[in-house]
Design a protein around this nucleic acid. Structure first.
Lengths: 152, 152
DNA sequence: GATTGACCTCAAGTTAACTTGAGCTTTTAC
DNA sequence: GTAAAAGCTCAAGTTAACTTGAGGTCAATC
């Protein structure tokens, strides 16, 4: 902080990124180990980040609120160019990708809500043919873990 | 199955419940251990379930698709009377409770989608004041685990 | 120049929601 | 009446997404 009063210093330390992005240092290490973000090292082996890491982290967190697992987020982030700093267009593509997911998820939840309204009071929920139980409930059928919108 | 051709036999074995509800036997054991469902035992120590367990399981699975954790689901299920078999009104109350959650969740996701649209392409995402990052992002700020709609 | 705070690595712990497995008992079916 | 199928218990394993801890280094400060 004292090192330079220039607000546009290029490199960020892990602590700075943590503070500005609101995630723990350990989480940043973790994300890096998972390939979600990247850094380079100083002579003393300390991580340094480019400013776009802040946006990446922001995106990661936003995507997570929709229920998208890190693996999916990682895959999406990999579509960003890593030879150059991603520009507005690159981010917009990502945005579009998730917008679809979000739209789908919203649609699913809305349908679910309407069915809930219709079905829960009646007897059909325990029957095989209940619209609440059956189509659209595929995700729930598949074993463990948190469900989320399917990649496609 | 052969024991009685009467479709309305009261008691269900764990295997029957598993088959009809689409969850594994181990999952039913697990739910029971977590207090989400209950059963009584035969002389031979085997579980027997009332028919309403099917509805409970259905409800559990439906609630899970919205991202509600089992602990929350359990709490909601506890509002059901356990002295008697829940009736339509009881289930309707549950329905209402989750309907609110669903509405909220849908609203959140919709807002998120709109913000994503507006923000991701521009530079604000990396800034503290970005509407995408800040209000409504409380859930994401709080450490680990899958985020979901807050109980209230 | 020494102390203190920020970093580093790597292993292990944590929570949710289950699944798998071992070893043993009950039922059902032929 | 016996063998296979279905159950039971309890412990341990699994995945995701992190956190915590131990033990050691780097760097900014008085």
């Amino acid at each position: 902080m004292t090192k330079s009063s220039c607000g546009l210093r290029r490199e960020l330390t892990v602590g700075e990124v943590a503070e500005r992005s609101g995630v723990a240092v350990s989480t940043l290490h973790f994300y890096e180990s998972k390939g979600l973000i990247s850094s380079w090292r100083t002579d003393g082996n300390q991580r340094r980040y480019g400013r776009d890491v802040l946006r990446r982290v922001a995106i990661i967190k936003v995507a997570q609120t929709t229920g998208i697992p890190l693996a999916e987020i990682r895959a999406a982030l990999e579509t960003l160019p890593n030879s150059r700093t991603p520009n507005a267009k690159d981010w917009a593509k990502l945005s579009a990708r998730w917008r679809e997911d979000l739209d789908l998820r919203i649609k699913q939840l809305t349908r679910l809500r309407d069915r809930l309204e219709k079905c829960i009071g009646c007897g059909c929920l325990s029957m095989d043919g209940c619209p609440l139980r059956n189509p659209g409930d595929k995700a729930a059928e598949q074993g463990s873990g948190a469900q989320y919108l399917k990649p496609a």
